[in-house]
């Protein structure tokens, strides 16, 4: 899937640029994408390392287990494949909570750790497990209470009411999460 999409992006984009005589832009994009990626990773990496450190403390002290036990009744409904009290439940909940508070940067390390933890439960290491996909759907739905980036952009443009989008956003994001989870369930049944 990703493979085909990738070919489509590059071939259609390149041909379109060449036909329109914008080969210089194409050149530029090909050369600069490495630097763009490196910049992005350099942006993620420092915080990633800090959170991995903090999380390891939480893991060693048993706090992560405790959190995961407290919320596992809810999550085990969504992730029936994960055994009760498994480490990944705590990481998934931390990721969701951080996302809820609009802390995308803090949420990513939890999410990556959760995926690693889900991978230990996965029988076929090359193929996505059902739990992984459910977890990703929750993430791609962008569940958040306060879309901070957009509010600050609105503020920058002198909006009369920058936070007016908060309530509609909340409604849309939670209903779409609900729909996303239903879609995920339907797919999971079909793929069995």
């Amino acid at each position: 899937m990703i493979n085909k999409l990738w070919i489509f992006f590059i071939v259609s984009g390149s041909l379109f640029l060449i036909i329109n005589g914008k080969a210089d832009i194409l050149n530029n994009q090909i050369i600069s994408s490495g630097k763009t990626t490196l910049d992005l990773i350099l942006q993620i990496f420092p915080l990633l390392a800090i959170w991995l450190g903090i999380m390891n403390i939480a893991k060693k002290s048993g706090l992560l287990d405790k959190v995961s036990k407290a919320i596992s009744p809810f999550l085990s409904k969504l992730f029936p494949e994960i055994p009760k009290g498994h480490e990944s439940l705590g990481l998934i909940s931390s990721n969701i909570i951080a996302n809820l508070f609009g802390l995308g940067n803090a949420a990513t390390p939890f999410g990556l750790k959760a995926m690693e933890s889900l991978q230990t439960l996965n029988k076929d290491k090359k193929t996505a497990s059902r739990s992984m996909i459910t977890f990703l759907v929750i993430n791609t739905c962008g569940v958040t209470l306060i879309p901070t980036t957009i509010i600050s952009l609105r503020l920058m443009h002198d909006s009369t009411d920058p936070t007016s989008i908060v309530v509609p956003c909340m409604l849309v994001t939670f209903i779409s999460l609900f729909i996303g989870l239903i879609i995920d369930r339907l797919f999971a049944k079909r793929y069995k």
Binding site: M1, I2, L5, L112, M115, E116, Q119, K125, K126, T127, A128, M132, I133, L136, V137, T140, G180, I183, D184, F187, A188, R190, Y191
Partner: peptide, 13 residues
């Protein structure tokens, strides 16, 4: 984590 086959993940998303 090195997953190659993403199954229906992209479609669901």
């Amino acid at each position: 984590i090195g997953i190659k086959k993403i199954k229906y993940a992209l479609w669901a998303g």
